[in-house]
């Protein structure tokens, strides 16, 4: 009987192996698709003129905020030879359930084209309203520059800022707004990272 069980195990694992080999290229592809779709939807306002370039890894100085990984992959949006914007990944480490991964699209004047939450484990139905598929909350950043508001206004209303948090969940929007403010402030100091001038 034990040999029979071993045989079952062998058959089962080879079956999973075959399915894995078949689906693996599709999985890689669909992961890439999902990422590209987000990049595309995010950079759409820029794309009427430009194209998504290849990501470039930029090494950041030591004073970079924790919201940015180092080196930072910056995806430029190019119009012919000129760069007209960039898509940058950033993250909020202090979400309600772990890290929230986000994407940020800026035009060349560092005006926000769009922000999207791409990977998070926030409470379904509450904290997940940062996802554009669930709510429009994250669209309120569109068109803003860091300089447009005073540094204290870059916070949720509960902390004296000007961004609404949603009912029942404060930690999630607070984490996102704070990480975004940190990131934008850093790019004001080092605009060359996203391809802009002072």
């Amino acid at each position: 009987m034990i040999f029979r069980l071993a045989l079952f195990g062998l058959i089962a694992s080879s079956l999973v192996g075959v399915i894995y080999v078949i689906t693996e290229p599709m999985i890689v592809e669909s992961k890439k698709d999902a990422r590209n779709k987000r990049l595309y939807s995010l950079a759409e306002p820029l794309l009427s003129e430009g194209k998504i370039g290849n990501p470039i890894n930029k090494v950041l100085a030591n004073d970079a905020p924790v919201s940015l990984i180092n080196p930072l992959p910056v995806t430029p949006i190019n119009d012919g030879k000129l760069q007209i914007g960039a898509v940058i990944p950033f993250r909020a480490l202090d979400g309600y359930s772990g890290t929230i991964e986000l994407l940020l699209a800026l035009d060349i004047d560092r005006r926000i084209v769009g922000v999207r939450a791409i990977d998070y484990k926030e409470t379904l139905g509450l904290g997940d309203k940062i996802d554009v598929q669930k709510a429009d909350w994250i669209l309120q950043f569109n068109g803003l520059r860091y300089m447009d508001l005073s540094p204290t206004a870059w916070a949720v209303t509960k902390d004296g800022g000007q961004f609404d948090s949603f009912t029942g969940a404060t930690i999630t929007p607070r984490a996102v707004v704070d990480a975004l403010a940190e990131t934008l402030a850093y790019f004001e100091t080092y605009p060359e990272i996203v391809g802009g001038g002072k």
């Binding site: 999973v16 689906t23 999985i27 669909s30 698709d33």
Partner: peptide
């Protein structure tokens, strides 16, 4: 377990979101 792993792989391949 075999079937669930297969279902997981298929779901990743066809509907990643």
């Amino acid at each position: 377990a075999t079937l669930t792993t297969s279902a997981e792989l298929f779901m990743q391949a066809f509907d990643y979101p």
